[in-house]
Simulated scan of single mutants.
Amino acid sequence: MSESCQPNWRTSSYTGSGDNSCVEVADNQPAVLVRDTKHAGAGPMISFSPEVWSRFTATVPGRRFHS
């Protein structure tokens, strides 16, 4: 993987405050990558299409989830 293709990880603005539920997001890739910060970059990550990520982040603030 070339230097320019490396994910640009940042702490998500949806990260909790002080409750150890932090995630990092890299959205400079063809897919949006998400990982748990507790694993210091060594743990698993999941990917979303940009469209799905946009819908998810639009839903989170209003907590409009269906069970």
Results as ranks from 00 to 15, higher is better:
Glu3Ala: 15
Asp27Pro: 05
Arg35Ala: 04
His39Ile: 08
Asn20Asp: 05
Gly41Glu: 00
Thr57His: 15
Gln6Phe: 14
Ser17Lys: 00
Val52Trp: 11
Asp36Gly: 11
Asp27Asn: 10
Glu51Gly: 12
Pro30Leu: 02
Gly16Trp: 03
Asp19Gly: 09
Asp19Asn: 12
Pro30Phe: 04
Trp53Glu: 03
Phe65Tyr: 13
Val32Asp: 12
Glu51Ile: 08
Ser54Ile: 01
Tyr14Lys: 13
Ala42Lys: 10
Thr37Ile: 06
Ser4Ile: 12
Ala42Asp: 12
Val34Asn: 02
Glu24His: 10
Glu24Cys: 10
Ser4Phe: 03
Cys5Trp: 14
Arg35Pro: 02
Val23Thr: 07
Asp36Pro: 03
Tyr14Asn: 08
Phe56His: 08
Val52His: 14
Arg55Trp: 15
Val25Asp: 04
Asp36Cys: 05
Phe48Tyr: 11
Asn20His: 00
Thr37Asn: 12
Val34Glu: 12
Gly62His: 10
His66Tyr: 06
Thr15Tyr: 03
Asp36Gln: 00
Gly16Met: 03
Asn20Glu: 09
Ser2Met: 06
Glu24Gly: 09
Arg64Ile: 09
Val23Trp: 05
Asn8Asp: 15
Ser4Glu: 04
Pro50Ile: 02
Gly16Lys: 00
Pro7Asp: 02
Pro7Phe: 07
Ser21Arg: 11
Thr11Ala: 08
Thr11Val: 08
His66Arg: 13
Phe56Ala: 09
Ser12Glu: 07
Gly41His: 05
Ser2Gln: 00
Pro50Arg: 09
Asn8Leu: 15
Tyr14Gly: 03
Arg55His: 15
Lys38Ser: 01
Arg55Phe: 15
Ser12Asp: 03
Cys22Ile: 02
Ser12Ala: 09
Phe56Val: 07
His39Val: 04
Ser2Asp: 10
Gly43Leu: 05
Val23Arg: 10
Trp53Phe: 13
Ala42Leu: 12
Phe65Pro: 10
Ala31Arg: 08
Trp9Val: 05
Glu51Met: 07
Gly16His: 00
Leu33Asn: 01
Asp36Val: 08
Gly18Cys: 01
Phe56Glu: 04
Ser13Met: 15
Val34Ser: 03
Val34Cys: 09
Pro50Glu: 06
Gly43Val: 07
Val60Asp: 14
Gln29Ser: 02
Trp53Val: 10
Ala58Asn: 09
Ala58His: 09
Ser12Phe: 00
Glu51Val: 05
Ile46Ser: 12
Thr37Phe: 07
Thr59Asp: 05
Arg10Met: 04
Glu3Ser: 10
Ser12Arg: 06
Ser49Gln: 11
Glu3His: 15
Pro7Gln: 04
Gly43Gln: 08
Phe48Thr: 02
Arg55Gly: 15
Arg64Cys: 11
Ser67Leu: 12
Arg10His: 14
Pro61Ser: 14
Val23Asp: 13
Gly41Ala: 08
Glu24Ile: 00
Ser47Asp: 07
Thr15Cys: 07
